[in-house]
């Protein structure tokens, strides 16, 4: 099935891809890029055109197929199949050959360190989305229509543009510790020293170290929330805001009665997206503490079990727990969608 979708594209590209070594030029890469994009656009354009011109009887059906077909096909191959495979693997041993039933799950709940990991993940997913939304929304409202809005926005957006690993590097630098008799090189500890406190090992002292890692994720995700909310706020029709102002509504009332209903849809999207991103958080923990000192989360543990310690069964079981943790978010979205439909 996949061959059907990819075959023609890849065959069309093969001459570009496999040209002889001796006659290569600097533009070959760009040619490959242009060719790839052109082929993609042409294929999409042609199937859209054909579906549009198909006989009336099958037209609705053909159009539907063209619109969702490619995405569904790619997702089946690239994500649904691996997900199913993971679920199956989670019931097998580390060689993937012997069926062990639920023993990988049993292992999970009997290892104190893994239980700690599960608890940490829940803490992350409770705090990060709410805090990011609070800061992002507040900032979006505060700077709306302010002078230099683009610059103000990019200041908070900037962390988004840095990779997770880059962000971890930046914060490790912030948390850096030196003994109290030495000069501090991490800003946070310097502030503590200025205030007359002892410098702290922010990343080593459990359980607070988890919160210092969470700050990094909030720092990143606030930019996402802010950009989406800012667009949503600008989408609220002027008339409604003017009407509220005429009614004498104060800032808080405007927020409660105009802004909040106006951005409810975006709110669900942002909460959902950040929650899922948080469930999958991995680079931050891996880069900053390596999952040590009681800071590990499921995604990090899954990676280390699967690829470092070569225990794919255990790794898969941890991944299945991730799938289960996302269920409440899914159910919440279903309910929102139902409500939305009733309104419509």
């Amino acid at each position: 099935m996949f061959e059907l979708a990819v075959g023609p594209v890849s065959r069309a590209l093969v001459p570009l891809v496999t040209r002889g070594v001796s006659e290569s030029h600097w533009w070959d890469k760009w040619l490959l890029l242009a060719g790839g994009v052109a082929v993609f656009i042409a294929v999409i354009g042609i199937i859209l055109f054909l579906a549009d011109k198909s006989p009336k009887k099958i037209r609705d059906w053909a159009q539907l197929l063209v619109f969702v077909g490619p995405s569904i096909l790619l997702l089946l191959v690239g994500l649904v199949y691996p997900a199913v495979r993971t679920i199956i693997l989670s019931a097998f041993d580390d060689k993937g050959t012997t069926f062990v039933g639920l023993s990988n799950y049993l292992w999970m709940v009997t290892q104190p360190s893994i239980v700690q990991t599960l608890i940490n993940t829940v803490i992350w997913v409770l705090i990060v989305p709410l805090a990011s939304v609070a800061f992002g929304l507040a900032y979006a409202i505060f700077i709306d229509k302010a002078r230099g809005e683009p610059v103000l926005k990019s200041l908070v957006f900037m962390p988004m543009a840095i990779s997770f690993v880059g962000a971890s590097v930046i914060w490790k630098f912030m948390y850096e510790y030196r003994g109290s008799e030495l000069e501090q090189i991490g800003l946070l500890n310097q502030i503590l020293v200025w205030l007359g406190f002892q410098p702290q090992q922010f990343l080593l002292n459990s359980p607070w170290n988890t919160f210092f890692l969470i700050i990094v994720m909030i720092w990143i995700q606030t930019g996402f929330a802010m950009v989406v909310f800012s667009a949503a706020i600008k989408g609220i029709p002027n008339e409604i805001i003017e009407a509220a102002k005429l009614d004498g509504a104060n800032a808080w009332q405007q927020f409660r009665n105009v802004t909040l209903p106006g951005i409810r849809g975006s709110m669900v999207v942002v909460l959902t997206t950040i929650s899922i991103a948080t469930l999958k958080v991995f680079d931050i923990v891996r880069t900053m503490t390596g999952g040590n000192y009681g800071t590990s989360v499921i995604a990090n543990e899954m990676y280390s079990q699967t690829f470092i310690q070569v225990q794919p069964g255990r790794g898969s079981a941890l991944a299945v727990v991730l799938f289960i943790l996302v269920l409440p978010i899914v159910i919440y979205n279903i309910r929102v969608m139902r409500k939305q439909k009733e309104i419509r």
Binding site: A83, T86, N333
Partner: peptide, 13 residues
């Protein structure tokens, strides 16, 4: 719903 739930599938797997 399934499509958006697929976001949670860890890339590494």
């Amino acid at each position: 719903i399934v499509v958006f739930a697929l976001q949670v599938v860890p890339l590494q797997l």
